[in-house]
Amino acid sequence: MKVLLVDDSVTMRRIQKTQIGNLGVTEIVEAGDGQEALGVLKNNMPVDLVLLDWNMPIMDGITFLKTVRADATYKDVKIVMCTSESEKSRVVEALKSGANNYIVKPFTPEALKEKLGL
């Protein structure tokens, strides 16, 4: 299983990497914004899962999500939002735009495990 972590916070990616690593995932690639993530995704296919932040510079997570969902090449890539954006309207917008699940920061390792289905 290959996972792409997309978050502008290096700290957050470090935490996610540790927690996902503890769940047995060994192939992890990273990007610091949506634009960079598009390139990392393209160059690392097949990617099974993207863990996606919302608020990032250059290209935000919702734009990345819509871009990826408009491309059939990536139809099997599971995308789970992992963001501090907590309002119901944001969750609805992300799910409507093709996110498979939604994790609100701050999360526990247990919540991450459950939402990722790992």
């Binding site: 916070s9 501090s84 907590s86 609100v104 701050p106």
Partner: peptide, 9 residues
């Protein structure tokens, strides 16, 4: 970021 975003709910 986490505190501000979570409070928005």
């Amino acid at each position: 970021n986490i505190v501000a975003g979570f409070a928005k709910r």
